[in-house]
Design a protein around this nucleic acid. Structure first.
Length: 956
RNA sequence: GCGGCGGUGGCGCAAUGGCGACGCAGCAGACUUAGGAUCUGUGGCCCCUGAUCGGGCUUGAGGGUUCGAAUCCCUUCCGCCGCACCA
């Protein structure tokens, strides 16, 4: 693999052949030239990057990749797939008269960098910056046309100054549900102060509240707020995590450690305020349906009703999507952590309490605390694993079903989750499978309130499962005021909701699965919060003048991790070890006072939530981004009502993390008037993965893929037979192929072509190093069609091309243009190959009027060789800014078309005919063709179908 | 379990109702001291033939619509990706 391929080394016989050595020379030369000339600089309408009036008046395209995380392992050939694709598309758009913004930064805060630093004993800043430098070298070798002036890393203080600034904007705002948008918190304070709006939770006026009380009230409104709600605590990582970072089976997405629920004071972002808008605005986005669907599922909007059940003097509010089944609610369930549990649990079991309800405990208090303790010690993994067996315990309390006045027992059970709805349900065992299972386990009554349509009877004693149907009719559901009997589900829902509303014991409501975003982490390597606490514990934002709040240089930056299974542990923030940094005296406008700094750091998503905006105006130290610049590149316009990046390419794994968070921040910044765009990314495209074969020996251990030999369809490593499976590419599987080695063997242009030719961009496919040579041959033939391999002289001539060549050329232009526009790079390359093969076969020197458009056709895909040939063809200007060729429609349609003559659908003959031939003429020509006559052999013709000019089908 | 996407030569794939694109591998030849370079040709399977010519079958499987289906419809199998005690 690493041996030099003689195919690509210089040949004595042809000193000017396109070889790896020549490619390396050409590529290095033009990369230097582009950097020196600023070829890929995209001018802004104003500011320090303004300039080049030739370009600035053009329509714009903002074409972006999901920026990379600079890992220590470096790149393998899978990483740059998306970067090459956006680069080709960006170059194509540039050749179509657009001012194209295309650059790449680095997402460099976060766990892996920290872990790498701990392992290697280097400071994360040192190792991360070294990794970035290494990655920059690897990427530059690929000839990506990035505007380097706009690149940055999220760890640069000049960048995270603005990440912190945005945090403060979010902290200092609240969501005005009437206006449906965020507003500065000062406006809310003014309303409280004037009495226009009552202060929730207090009877005293705003002016009479203490600073702590005011802070608590405002904390209930701020879009960034600290709260004590249960969070996902991951002892194995030593940090808390967002819901989005916990897998379905209750483990950390990174590291795969168990996650426990723990009550900890943590920072949150009130993303739930935006649930509706995050859902609705998806419609106008040009995103893959699969990703939209995932976001919709994650937001999880469901319509239903809230219903109050009385329990003594208390009220339990439940959320249900099936208020129509209210009459069938025969018991209730609270989540174990529900705050009403203590209040309603009596001292003793009611008379005649069923043994299975008590869990064998002497009192309800014992039973409840035992069950709660057991639930808390269980990780979500265990809870999931035991999902089939319904567990729970009776609280000893009864509620009243408001529909039929019946006393129904109240249970706690872990199949009801505190984090969804109100953390309490009315249980309708006849209509819900979970409730049915619980009812059977605890011998609870099951009242049939929906008429079964599947043949079963209405006696639920015979049932083996719940009957959950939206098609059936309601029965057994009437009281003195209302009857749902005979109604279909939808109507019954509406009627019962009206009744509940009129009685003041419920209302129609919309519930979301989405929960607020847990925003603090117990790590060193992240943005510090620009927050300090006074001696009363009240949080104060730092003024903008104190930003950036830089990470302190510390000796010990390692996270405090714990036994992964120990739920009783609690996190410790690395920054808290640094007393000098934590305890400060600051003047926040009321004289110098003592404060303690917040010691949590932001999650690694923070930096990627808004980076597209900073590309626009990367050096602005007075504003996040200049409004005029933002409007030019990102503003709403025809077909893009919410504005946003024109094309955003990246992996599908960010469907609900980065993409949801970034949308949220974008909307807040828009609401507060900082940006004109409402959505960050108008068009999203998910590239597939480059897979690689993994070879394992008999013990299942991966062996180096490069050392495996194939014999008769089997695979061998050092004589031992090994198995082959398709998997990911990576160091641990010993199958990584680096772009560096492919560049060394063939050059960057070949690598770019191969990655684009492998298949459609959105499909995953296996890497095959052997096949790369095919694209190298294309470039060799292209080169040979224009340059003499022996003398190095240009071979193009000034004669006119023949008709067939003109048609081949213009058909290719037409097809390649459409394919590059539609991101179908694989078929674009096939069409260029086809044209080049035609020219090779035709032989003879190439007319200049063919050679030049040929070079322009491939310029976006293989920019170095195109730039070199363009220069050799005598042009001083870079090929980068040439116009993409336009097909002449006269030559796109063939002068003669091959018409297929079928007999009973089988092709029997081909005729060369004019594209404008009439049906009659074509039929006559077909029927008189000698092959057709022979094939018919006198058989009677029943019918002739003519589709001029392409087809005649004769039915006998 | 629910939802989404997809099955085409040895391999990656092209073709959205009408000719199996393009590339790799393979085979044959040319140039060569040599070939893993380069160039030319070939290009799935079966039948017929001494060889041509010719004929038939092929897009996971089965059925349907149509003059004609990889493409549209129904049934079914397999693979990948989401979601999953969400009330």
């Amino acid at each position: 693999m690493s041996e030099t391929n003689p195919a690509t080394t210089a040949e004595v016989a042809a000193p000017h052949r396109y070889t790896a050595a020549m490619a390396a020379d050409i590529e290095a030369r033009w990369q230097d030239h582009w950097d020196a000339e600023g070829t890929y600089s995209a001018p802004n309408p104003t500011g320090d990057l303004a300039g080049d009036p030739r370009i600035v008046g053009r329509p714009k395209k903002f074409i972006m990749d999901m920026f990379p995380y600079p890992s220590g392992a470096g790149l393998h050939v899978g990483h740059p797939l998306g970067y090459i694709a956006t680069d080709v598309h960006a170059r194509f758009q540039r050749m179509n008269g657009h001012n194209v913004l295309h650059t790449l930064g680095f997402d460099a805060f976060g766990l892996p960098a920290e872990q790498y630093a701990v392992q290697t004993g280097t400071h994360p800043r040192v190792s991360t910056e070294a990794n970035i430098e290494n990655m920059k070298v690897q990427l530059r070798r690929l000839g990506l046309g990035h505007d380097r002036r706009r690149s940055f890393a999220t760890i640069d203080p000049e960048y995270y100054k603005w990440t912190q600034w945005i945090f403060l904007q979010i902290f200092n705002s609240w969501y005005d549900t009437e206006a449906g948008r965020a507003r500065p918190i000062d406006e809310l304070v003014a309303r409280f102060a004037s009495g226009e709006r009552p202060v929730p939770g207090h009877t005293r006026a705003w002016g009479e509240l203490t600073a702590t009380e005011r802070a608590d009230v405002l904390g209930g409104f701020r879009l960034a707020y600290a709260s004590d709600a249960p969070v996902n605590w991951c002892p194995g990582l030593g940090t808390v995590l967002a819901n989005e970072e916990v897998t379905a089976d209750g483990r950390s997405e990174r590291g795969n450690f168990p996650v426990f629920k723990a009550k900890l004071r943590q920072w949150n972002m009130r993303i739930t305020a935006y649930a509706d808008r995050l859902l609705d605005d998806l419609d106008a986005l040009d995103w893959p349906e699969a990703i939209k669907l995932q976001q919709r599922n994650w937001i999880g909007r469901s319509e239903g009703a809230r219903v109050d059940f009385a329990v003594g003097d208390e009220r339990i509010t439940v959320f249900t999507t099936r208020p129509d089944t209210l009459f069938g609610a025969t018991y209730m369930v609270l989540a174990p952590e529900h705050e009403l549990v203590e209040k309603i649990t009596p001292a003793a079991w009611p008379e005649g309490t069923h043994d299975v309800w008590t869990g064998g405990h002497a009192t309800p208090v014992d039973a409840v605390s035992a069950y709660r303790a057991q639930a808390a010690s269980k990780s979500d993994v265990e809870r999931q694993a035991e999902a089939k067996d319904k567990t729970g315990v009776f609280t000893g309390a009864f509620a009243v079903n408001p529909a039929n006045g019946e006393r129904v027992p109240v249970f706690i059970a872990d199949y009801v989750l505190m984090g969804y709805g109100t953390g309490a349900i009315m249980a309708v065992p006849a209509g819900d499978q979970r409730d049915f299972e619980f009812a059977r386990a605890f011998e609870l009554p099951i009242t049939c309130i929906v008429e079964p349509t599947d043949g079963r009877g209405t006696d639920t004693a015979d049932w083996e499962s719940a009957f959950a149907s939206y098609e059936a009719k309601i029965i057994n559901s009437a009281n003195d005021e209302i009857s749902l009997d005979g109604l279909p589900v939808a109507e019954a829902k509406a009627r019962v909701t009206d009744w509940l509303t009129a009685r003041g014991i419920g209302e129609g409501t919309v519930n979301f699965r989405l929960r607020d975003w847990l925003f603090s982490r117990q790590r060193y390597w992240g943005e510090p919060f620009p927050i300090v606490y006074d001696e009363d514990g009240v949080a104060h934002p730092l003024p903008e003048s104190m930003l950036p709040l830089e990470l302190p240089e510390v000796e010990d930056y390692s996270p405090r991790t714990f036994d992964a299974d120990d739920a009783d542990t609690r996190p410790e923030t690395p920054l808290s070890r640094n007393e000098d940094w934590v305890n400060v005296t600051l003047d926040l406008g009321d004289g110098p006072r003592k404060y303690r700094r917040e010691t949590n750091t932001m999650p690694n998503w923070a930096g990627s939530c808004w980076y597209e905006l900073r590309y626009l105006d990367p050096h602005n130290d007075r504003r996040l981004v200049d409004p005029e610049i933002e409007r030019y590149w990102m503003g709403p316009r025809e077909g893009q009502p919410h504005g946003g990046v024109d094309l955003y390419v990246g992996g599908a794994e960010h469907a609900v993390l980065h993409l949801l968070y970034a949308r949220f921040w974008s909307k807040v910044l828009h609401d507060l008037g900082h940006i004109s765009s409402v959505e960050p990314f108008h068009k999203l495209f998910n590239q597939g993965m480059i897979q690689a074969y993994v070879y394992r020996d008999s013990r299942g251990i991966a062996v180096p893929a490069a050392e495996v030999e194939e014999r008769d369809g089997a695979y061998y490593h050092q004589g031992e037979k090994v198995s082959r499976l398709l998997g990911k590419m990576g160091k641990s599987l010993k199958n990584a192929v680096t772009p560096d080695e492919i560049c060394a063997e063939y050059g960057a242009d070949t690598l770019r072509l191969y990655e684009m030719a492998m298949g459609p961009l959105d499909v995953s496919r296996p890497w095959d190093t052997r096949a790369v040579v095919g694209q190298f041959r294309l470039l060799q033939r292209l080169w040979r069609n224009i340059v003499d391999e022996d003398s190095g002289a240009l071979t193009v001539v000034d004669t006119e091309p023949d008709e067939a060549t003109l048609r081949a050329l213009h058909k290719a232009i037409d097809g390649v243009r459409q394919d590059l526009d539609g991101l179908r790079f694989n078929t674009a390359i096939a069409k260029i190959t086809e044209l080049n093969n035609h020219l090779t076969k035709a032989g003879g020197p190439l007319p200049r009027t063919v050679a030049e458009p040929l070079v322009l056709l491939i310029a976006a895909l293989a920019p170095h060789i195109a730039e070199e040939l363009w220069r050799r063809l005598g042009h001083e200007d870079s090929v980068v800014h040439q116009d993409f060729p336009v097909a002449d429609p006269r030559y796109v349609v063939d002068e003669s078309v091959t018409c297929v003559v079928q007999i009973k659908g089988k092709v029997k003959a081909r005729l060369e005919v004019s594209p404008s031939i009439s049906d009659e003429e074509l039929e006559k020509a077909a029927l008189s063709d000698e092959k057709v006559v022979a094939a018919l052999d006198g058989a009677g013709i029943r019918k002739v179908i003519v589709r001029a000019p392409k087809l005649v089908n004769i039915v006998t």
